[in-house]
């Protein structure tokens, strides 16, 4: 039985960001174009009603 190992370079992902709102911007340097995606920080909704 040969177990297939997926060789994937898994890098840690960002947390506490809003992945629904992004800014995508292609950037070209030395004829190499990459798309840079910027995420917004997830807005903290204060749902606690601790104040009397």
């Amino acid at each position: 039985k040969v177990s297939k190992k997926k060789i994937r370079n898994i890098r840690p992902r960002l947390k506490n960001i809003d992945r629904s709102q992004v800014v995508r911007q292609p950037v070209t340097v030395n004829n190499v174009t990459v798309v840079i995606t910027e995420y917004m920080m997830r807005s903290v909704t204060s749902s606690s009603q601790s104040n009397p």
Partner: peptide, 9 residues
């Protein structure tokens, strides 16, 4: 907070 290709310099 950025995501891009590993090829990006």
């Amino acid at each position: 907070f950025i995501k891009t290709s590993a090829n990006a310099s």
